[in-house]
Every structure is written in structure tokens, then in C-alpha cells.
Design a binder for these strands. Structure first.
Length: 549
RNA sequence: GGCCCGUUGGUCAAGCGGUUAAGACAUCGCCCUUUCACGGCGAUAACGGGAGUUCGACUCUCCCACGGGUCACCA
């Protein structure tokens, strides 16, 4: 077979050579040990936790080493194309603070190793495709989908290994005449790799996360170029990561199975093999069993879920970091105020088995994250969230920012900050009773509470209430009310002789709390009253009095 | 079916041949406290099963079971 002739037949317009590519994309001038890696998603319009897990891992490893992190768009599948998806993707990643040094951006490409959208790299792939054909390492295949299905069917019947390989590779050694004829007839074709591997050959390979793994050589003649001339993932991965001078390929472990193909391709093209790190899947509990988290079944997989709930981006970021490197938690406790970027991330610490999505853990982390934020920061983030999901609430916030910030400031700062909420939707619930239009008596008085005592407490409080009082004075007044009604003003006294009192200061406080906040539980009542202001406090207590009749 | 990866408490997980098998979340007590939240103290709870190797195995080897991935002109 005259491979040079075949190559001209297949790729008449390709004049550049692999050497030209080497010149156009020279090795990067980076210090020893600098990692070059990337996030390479396909733009389906659905951005998920997996994207964050992968991109965050790569980004940490790159930037910790003084290397380069870039974004490459894997848009080789025309069927899955969703318009606007690239923009959504870029926005989401930016929202989660994934920092790219080069690659695709909203305004086009940045960097010297582009284009970074695979569809635009067609000519580059064809240079290598032609090279492989010239050297007898690739050939055209004119099989139709039906023919391939038939082969598959026969393989199943014969219990042969599935796939286009060896004796089943019907176009692998066709005479040039057959190829010319098919070409002349305008039959669509794909370019296949001529595999020389055998599944009898096995060897060890070191994966940065999985450790030592067993590789069985690939013997399938995989598709390099689809009939539209666009490469498959495998071919694009090898060409791009070589030309973009990627040192570390960090990706989900669903790719582990095709690693033999990739290694084979790197060798065939004479490229230096990058290091690989395969991340285990994110799992989720489904009843009593674990399964891989899925786009269709689990809303928590989509990033939009976290946005809707109002999880601060920092929370999701720290949660993912916790899942990936469990020692992050210990580090965070020891360094509560240090930016997460200073944590020393390690691929070795990653669990090869993956991690389970744990909503309770996320919530806990989020509460901690929020507890360390300033009121101004919370106000700004809350407002942004509200504008998108609770426009009415957003207007209320903007109408009186100082009022909102005063509410947010309750129990903030200091050594033991309150942790009432971890998301903006929780905060919105929490803030409801501070606003008259969302205030509601959600908790009724307990059955055993004496109605006349409640009324007496409320009435007496109104008589003596002075918003100018210091907290001590304010509380002494409430204690006086308690004493006057036969309730123990001190809990200690009450606990010693509960029988001698009608109740305790706790009950008296509760009578007031329900009237003022509508709830059995609230933050410190003095602070709450200070924020609400005299008018609201009086109005709510009066309204409760008239409710009680 | 072939090939590959994985399996420590309910969950996330330390551990890398000798440990009372960390810590966190969750759960349950107690303390603090005008409620709640926070915080403090404590409790329950684990090496999938079976053979080896070894003086000794959660750690090494093999087999089995279970879970997962993959075998597309999808990534």
C-alpha cells in the first residue's frame, strides 16, 4: 500500500506538517515543576458539580506550582451543541472563582496556544491525521452505522470482544482500489487508527490519584476523525494536550478505560506522555445504596441548584475542597481566617474511590463560612441573590440597607458568632419577622401558658418599656414583671423550688418573644427590639393584646 | 461478557506492618443560657468475607462478594 498516495487522496489540502505545528506551539518557558493543566468541558448548557470538582483540582495544582491553567472548550459534538452554552459555562466558572490564565473567554481567546475551541482547530488535527495516514497508522473506514451494528451483533453471537478490531476491522487492509472507488462514490468515511496493540499485553502505569494501575493494551481501531472531519475526544485530547503543552491531565475516572488508547496515540505521534490524575466519581445516597450522582435524578448536581438555594460561592468552594482533600477541614479549623487558596492542595490526598455528596456537611460548612463574613458582604450577596429569586425582598432590602445590615449584624463578630443560616434563602426566612409585610405569628403560645398572665406581662411591659434603656435596665424591668406575677425572676431560684412559682423568667420572656417576633425562638430579644424600634415593638405587642381579647 | 477502578463507624475520612483505629458532620446525653443558635464536656458507632505471607496485618499477596466505570462517528 502506498500510504503517501492514500494520504494525498484523503487530505489534499493539508500542506503543513507536524514540524510546523511544533514551531507554532513551542514548549512553554516555565520553571521546573510548573504544572500546566486545563479544564476541558463540553458545552452542553448544563454546568455541574463535576465541573467544579475537576476545574478546582486542576486550578489548585497549577497555581500552587506556579504553572498555567487554561480553559479549552470541547465542542466536537455537533449533535449536543446548545447555543449560548459556552457563555453560561464561562460565567459559572467565573462565579465560582475558578481562575484561568488563558483559554476561551467570553470575549474570545486569550493565550498563545489557541484556538481553544476545538471546532476551530480542525486544520491542526488534519495535519496529524495526514501524518498518521502517511505512516500507515491510520486508514479510512466507510462502514455505515448499520454495518457496524451488524458487526456488533455477530460479535455478541460469537461472544467475541466488542468493537472494531483485528478480524472485524473490515476496512483495515482494503486494497487502495476499494478506497478510491468508495471515495469517488462520495461515501462518507471516518479515519480510524490502525492499532497494533494486543489485549494480551499488560503493563503498569502510575496515576497521580489512583496510584499504580494495570493497563491492558488497546486493540480497537478507534475513530480519530468523524465523518464531518471533526476529531473524536481521543484524538483531540492527544493533539491538544501535546500542542498546548499540558503537563498534567486531570479528569474524571470515567476516562480511565480509554487511557490505553490515549497512551497508544501519544506514542504513535511521538509525543511525550503527560502525567495523568483520574478523579473518582461523586456519589450520592439513593435509599440505602450509593450511586454516581446524576444530572437527571439529582438537582444537587447542577450548579444552578446552589444558586437558587443561595449558597455563597465560598461555601460550595470550601465544601468541594473538603470532599477532595479531607485534611482541608483540619487546616480550616487551624486557620479560620486564611484564604482557602493558601491551603496546600494535594492530589495524593484525594480518595481514588471518589466522594459522597453530603448535604448536611455542606450546610454545616456553609454556616461556618457565613458566620465569618462581614455584614456588608452578606448584605451585598443576599441582595444579589434576592434580585434574582425574591424581587420583593430585594426591594425591601434596598429601601433600608442600614436596617437590613443591623439585622444581619446580630451575633456577628466576636469569638462565638451565631450560626443561624448557611444560605440566603435561610437568611431570608430568618429575616422575615423584621419586616411588617412578612411578619406573622408563626408559633402560637403553648397550651399550658396562662392567657391572663400573658396579657398582664404584655401590658406591664408596655407601661415600663423605654427603648433608651441599657440591656441591664431593660432586663431588670422584665424581671420585675415576672416577680409581680409570681414567676421566678432568676432561673436558679426557679430550679431550686419550681413548685413555689407560677413559672420562670423564661416563660415571661417567651410571652414577649412570641408577641414581638411571632416565634418561640429568636436571637437575643433586647437586640431584636433595638433594631425593630419602639414603634414596631409597641404596635406588635398591642396587636397581640387585642388578638388575645 | 471482556477490561479497569474501588470497599475503615449513618456520612466525609486519618492511617502506608506493631495505634486505646484520629478528627469532622449527623445522632443522643449533660453543662452554659430568658428561648434559639453558638460554645464546652461526654456517649453510641467502623477496618466487606475467606485463605495466605509474617513473631505480628486495616495496612502486603491471592480468591470471592458487593459497588462503580467503560467497551459510540458522546464527551
Amino acid at each position: 500500500m502506498d500510504y503517501k498516495y492514500l494520504a494525498e487522496l484523503l487530505f489534499p489540502c493539508v500542506t503543513l506538517t507536524p514540524e510546523d505545528m511544533e514551531k507554532r506551539y513551542p514548549p512553554r518557558n516555565l520553571p521546573e515543576g510548573a504544572v500546566v493543566s486545563r479544564h476541558a468541558p463540553s458545552p452542553t448548557g448544563y454546568v455541574h458539580l463535576g465541573n467544579i470538582v475537576q476545574s478546582l483540582t486542576s486550578e489548585r495544582v497549577c497555581h500552587q506550582s506556579g504553572g498555567v491553567m487554561y480553559l479549552r472548550i470541547e465542542d466536537t459534538d455537533a449533535k449536543r451543541e446548545v447555543k449560548g452554552a459556552v457563555g453560561i459555562l464561562i460565567d459559572s466558572l467565573a462565579h465560582y472563582k475558578i481562575r484561568f490564565d488563558e483559554g476561551a473567554t467570553a470575549d474570545g481567546d486569550v493565550g498563545a496556544y489557541g484556538p481553544y475551541r476545538q471546532r476551530q482547530r480542525r486544520d491542526i488535527y488534519h495535519v496529524y491525521a495526514k501524518y498518521l495516514v502517511q505512516n500507515g497508522m491510520a486508514y479510512p473506514c466507510f462502514c455505515t452505522a448499520e454495518e457496524l451494528a451488524a458487526i456488533r451483533k455477530r460479535q455478541k453471537a460469537e461472544k467475541a470482544n466488542l468493537g472494531y478490531w483485528g478480524p472485524w476491522a473490515v476496512w483495515r487492509d482494503r486494497p487502495i482500489e476499494d478506497i478510491e472507488k468508495a471515495l469517488k462514490e462520495g461515501k462518507p468515511w471516518v479515519l480510524r487508527f490502525r492499532s497494533t496493540g494486543s489485549i494480551k499485553n499488560k503493563y503498569k502505569f502510575y496515576d497521580l490519584i489512583k496510584g499504580e494501575i494495570d493497563i491492558t493494551e488497546n486493540e480497537i481501531d478507534i475513530v480519530l476523525l468523524k465523518s464531518d472531519g471533526i476529531p473524536t475526544y481521543h484524538f483531540a485530547h492527544v493533539v491538544d494536550d501535546h500542542l498546548m503543552r499540558t503537563t498534567h491531565v486531570i479528569r474524571g475516572d470515567e476516562w480511565l478505560a480509554s487511557l490505553p488508547v490515549h497512551i497508544q496515540l501519544f506514542k504513535a505521534l511521538g509525543f511525550k506522555l503527560p502525567k495523568y490524575a483520574h478523579i473518582g466519581p461523586i456519589m450520592i445516597m439513593d435509599g440505602n445504596s450509593k450511586r454516581k450522582i446524576s444530572k437527571r435524578k439529582d438537582p444537587q448536581f447542577g450548579l444552578i441548584y446552589y444558586r437558587k438555594c443561595g449558597y455563597p460561592v465560598e461555601s460550595v468552594y470550601e465544601y468541594v475542597l473538603t470532599i477532595l482533600n479531607s485534611n482541608f477541614e483540619d487546616w480550616r479549623r487551624a486557620n479560620p481566617d486564611t484564604p482557602a487558596e493558601e491551603f496546600r492542595f494535594s492530589l495524593k490526598k484525594m480518595n481514588p474511590a471518589g466522594a459522597l455528596f453530603d448535604a448536611a456537611k455542606l450546610n454545616d460548612i456553609s454556616k461556618n463560612v457565613v458566620s465569618t463574613m462581614s455584614a456588608d458582604k452578606i448584605y451585598a450577596d443576599l441582595l444579589e441573590w434576592a434580585k434574582e429569586f425574591e424581587p420583593g425582598f430585594a426591594r425591601a432590602l434596598e429601601a433600608d440597607p442600614d436596617y437590613a445590615k443591623a439585622i444581619i449584624s446580630i451575633g456577628r463578630g466576636g469569638k462565638k458568632p451565631r450560626k443561624d443560616y448557611g444560605t440566603w434563602s435561610e437568611l431570608r426566612e430568618y429575616m422575615k419577622f423584621f419586616y411588617d409585610d412578612t411578619f406573622d405569628v408563626v408559633d402560637e403560645y403553648p397550651e399550658e401558658a396562662d392567657k391572663s398572665d400573658i396579657k398582664a406581662t404584655l401590658a406591664k411591659f408596655l407601661e415600663t418599656y423605654n427603648p433608651a434603656d441599657e440591656q441591664g435596665v431593660w432586663f431588670d424591668k422584665i424581671k420585675a414583671i415576672a416577680a409581680s406575677l409570681g414567676y421566678a425572676p432568676e432561673m436558679k431560684e426557679y430550679k431550686q423550688n419550681p413548685g413555689t412559682f407560677r413559672g420562670s423568667i423564661a416563660d415571661i420572656s417567651m410571652f414577649l418573644r412570641v408577641a414581638v417576633t411571632g416565634k418561640l425562638n429568636s436571637p437575643d430579644m433586647y437586640t431584636v427590639m433595638q433594631i425593630l424600634g419602639e414603634a414596631r415593638v409597641r404596635q406588635r405587642i398591642e396587636s397581640m393584646l387585642s388578638r388575645l381579647g
